[in-house]
Design a protein around this nucleic acid. Structure first.
Lengths: 256, 256
DNA sequence: CGTTAGTTTGATGGTCCTCAAGCACTGTGG
DNA sequence: CCACAGTGCTTGAGGACCATCAAACTAACG
């Protein structure tokens, strides 16, 4: 009667209080107990970082990645004139710096938006994981592919959508991502970003972001306020943003 | 006296007429003979595609990637209103659709800019390669990371650079990439793109692209004409574009 | 109660888009 | 040989979207 007991233990953890990463990867593969245990072992080396001071500096040449456990981070590049472009936000369950682990220098910086908890993952840990459990390797590669798809969609938004659609699309994407890891719903989610963050991410000025947010709010579509995003009319918002979540690829486990 | 002979054979191929992919990966790892042979074996299933008709359709769910041997391709997403955003261009030696191999649906389309030659790579071939030669897997993962870094830089360009700098940066990046695979020099390279391609890639209108190109030409910086890009004043152009090629990570073999 | 971070509003102007049309080159068929 | 259509490049005029400058307002916090 031992193994059922272990079963129940893991299942309980898996369903009740599983880490955001596990929830996310479960959208791709149904993870076995062994794989869950491997992932668990990865979560040693817990680190904390305070809001505002960078984790990784642009130009730094080190080889560590992180799994974000709690809080929000943004990755960005700064220009010579001081303006910055936020490339992406990381929410719990996301990897940080996975891409730059193989490039000679990190090509961008990470800044915690709020105080965060993250677990450090060394290059060698990852390579070992890849060698031992190919399915897990696939799952992590899937997560990386999904991250890149988000960057691509972001690119399309900045290149081809006007400010309204751009903001609407961005807030809808965040909603989907947070819902996947159990931190939001279709109607609302907590969001510690300022309007300046939105501006830096979307290639707009903070003033214009403010005006568009006001407009969306008064149109009864969405409210962005006091660290909370509330979606009043989901379908009209989707229509305005031309939001098609297919690129997020989170419609349920693919591999059994 | 057999193995030296083979040696010379491979070396000759390696230096004189090696494939663009091999030249590119050699910027990351110094490849052994075994690894070279593995790569060679990947180049079965040669395919040709004609300019204009898509390789992979947006929304298609299939799992093949390609290695581009000859010609140019662009990957793009179309909007509902018909405008399109080109995400990236692929030149010889580049992978196509490597990312979408794990996502349920391809999140973008590929269009050959000119007639192309490409070799098809199946998911399983790739997985087998990964299992057998970890160093080669690393090299391919490096190439994928580099591709993503280019998309990120592209994002920054559209978000934060004005039209002049954006075009200058774009043409400088192409020059660096082509030089790496032996298809260009610091001063010039062949380029089959139209001004419409530039517009679709850079989030500008074709009209504006034309005006800016004229301006850059008259300033004695760069000429984009008759399928050829000529860089007249490299350092001033780099300055205008704030071009820092670090993100391309092609400064020579990293792993011995 | 002053300071700071974040939000809000107004006025002005520039970059870049859209509409419109002419030009150059290439290939095609009468 | 020449009209022609098609593709790509070029130029002009007017206007939209969004940036910049300036400043008031609110809320949180020591």
């Amino acid at each position: 009667m031992l193994s059922p007991c272990i079963d129940r233990h893991i299942q309980k953890k898996g369903i009740m209080e599983s880490s955001p990463l596990i929830r996310k990867l479960s959208a791709f593969v149904a993870l076995s107990h062994v794989e869950l245990a491997m992932l668990e072992r990865l979560h040693q080396r817990q680190r904390s970082f305070v809001a505002g001071s960078d984790l990784v500096y642009q130009g730094q040449s080190e080889q560590a990645a992180y799994i974000l456990a709690e809080g929000w981070v943004c990755s960005y590049k700064v220009q010579r004139d001081g303006s910055r472009q936020i490339v992406d936000f990381q929410v719990p369950g996301d990897f940080l710096g996975l891409r730059s682990i193989l490039l000679r220098t990190s090509d961008h910086s990470f800044e915690p938006v709020v105080d965060i908890q993250a677990t450090e993952v060394l290059k060698d840990d990852l390579l070992e994981l890849f060698a031992q459990t190919p399915r897990l390797a696939m799952a992590i590669f899937w997560a990386a592919s999904r991250d890149e798809a988000m960057v691509v969609e972001h690119l399309v938004g900045i290149g081809r959508r006007d400010a309204d659609a751009r903001i609407a699309h961005f807030l809808l994407e965040l909603g989907s991502r947070l819902t996947l890891v159990g931190l939001g719903s279709r109607e609302e989610y907590g969001c510690p970003l300022t309007q300046y963050h939105l501006a830096d991410a979307l290639g707009l000025s903070p003033i214009h972001v403010n005006r568009v947010l006001k407009q969306l709010r008064e149109a009864g579509l969405i409210t962005f306020r006091h660290g909370r995003v509330t979606i009043h009319d989901h379908s009209r918002l989707v229509d305005l943003a031309e939001f098609d979540p297919a690129y997020l690829d989170q419609t349920g486990p693919l591999l059994k």
